[in-house]
């Protein structure tokens, strides 16, 4: 039966490949961001929205 076939279907390889792909990509991004990336560079680029003509709240 269709339902039984579907219920039994697990395709662990595909799920595992997808998960591992995500996990290692995530790990790569995490490690690069936390360890390798240049902090000064981030400090600079996060100012992009604040360096145009508009100014926001005044203290």
């Amino acid at each position: 039966m269709k339902k039984e076939a579907l219920s039994a279907f697990t395709n662990p390889d595909m799920i595992l490949i997808g998960f591992l792909l995500f996990f290692f990509c995530f790990l790569g991004v995490l490690l690069w961001t936390v360890i390798v990336a240049d902090k000064n560079y981030f400090s600079k680029v996060k100012m992009i929205p604040l360096t145009d003509n508009d100014k926001g709240a005044k203290k």
């Binding site: 400090s43 996060k46 929205p49 604040l50 100014k55 926001g56 709240a57």
Partner: peptide
């Protein structure tokens, strides 16, 4: 960031 005038 714009409204608060501070970076993320």
């Amino acid at each position: 960031p714009k409204a608060a005038n501070r970076p993320v």
